[in-house]
C-alpha cells in the first residue's frame, strides 16, 4: 500500500541527522496529531524516542516530536534524514521521499483527507516529486 514503512531505531554510528522539514503546529487539524500519536504510540512513549520511517530511496527518517507547555502533545514535528555523516543529501531524492511521506501521512489520517486531493494539489502547484513518482 505504501512505500514508506515505520521501522525500528537505526544504528546511528557514522550517521548524521539532517533537518529537512519543520512543522510547528501538528494539531492545526487535530486528526493529524492523532495519527502520529496512534502510529508511534506517543501516549506511551512520549518524548523518549523519535519515530523512524524508511522512504522510497532507502533512507531512514527520524520524526522528532515537539512538546510545548499548555498544548496537547505533540505540538510540533521535525523531520530529519539520517544520512552518512560526511555526505550531502541530494535535493531530488529528499523531495521525492518527503512527498512519499506526505502520501503515507494523508493515507493514514484518512477520513476526509484523501490521497486524490493531495495529488491534485501537487499537480495544481506542479510539484516535481509528483512527476518523478509517476515515472
Amino acid at each position: 500500500m505504501s512505500d514508506v514503512i515505520v521501522c525500528p531505531a537505526p544504528d546511528l554510528v557514522e550517521k548524521r541527522l539532517e533537518l529537512v522539514l519543520v512543522e510547528d503546529r501538528i494539531g492545526h487539524y487535530p486528526e493529524f496529531r492523532d495519527f502520529f500519536i496512534h502510529t508511534f504510540e506517543l501516549d506511551r512513549v512520549g518524548l523518549a524516542i523519535p519515530g523512524y520511517l524508511t522512504a522510497p530511496s532507502g533512507l531512514t527518517y527520524a520524526l522528532v516530536f515537539i512538546g510545548r507547555s499548555g498544548e496537547a502533545f505533540p505540538s510540533g514535528l521535525e523531520i530529519y534524514a539520517i544520512v552518512d555523516a560526511l555526505e550531502p543529501i541530494g535535493d531530488a531524492v529528499l523531495d521525492t521521499d518527503l512527498w512519499a511521506i506526505l502520501k503515507w501521512m494523508i493515507n493514514g489520517v484518512g477520513g476526509e483527507w484523501k490521497l486524490d486531493d493531495l495529488e491534485a494539489t501537487g499537480r495544481l502547484y506542479r510539484i516535481p516529486a509528483l512527476r518523478t513518482a509517476a515515472r
Binding site: 512543522e23 493529524f32 483527507w113
Partner: peptide
C-alpha cells in the same frame, strides 16, 4: 490541503 500539517511546510 495546501496548508495542512506537514503539507504546508512542504508545499
Amino acid at each position: 490541503m495546501m496548508h495542512a500539517p506537514v503539507v504546508g511546510p512542504y508545499l
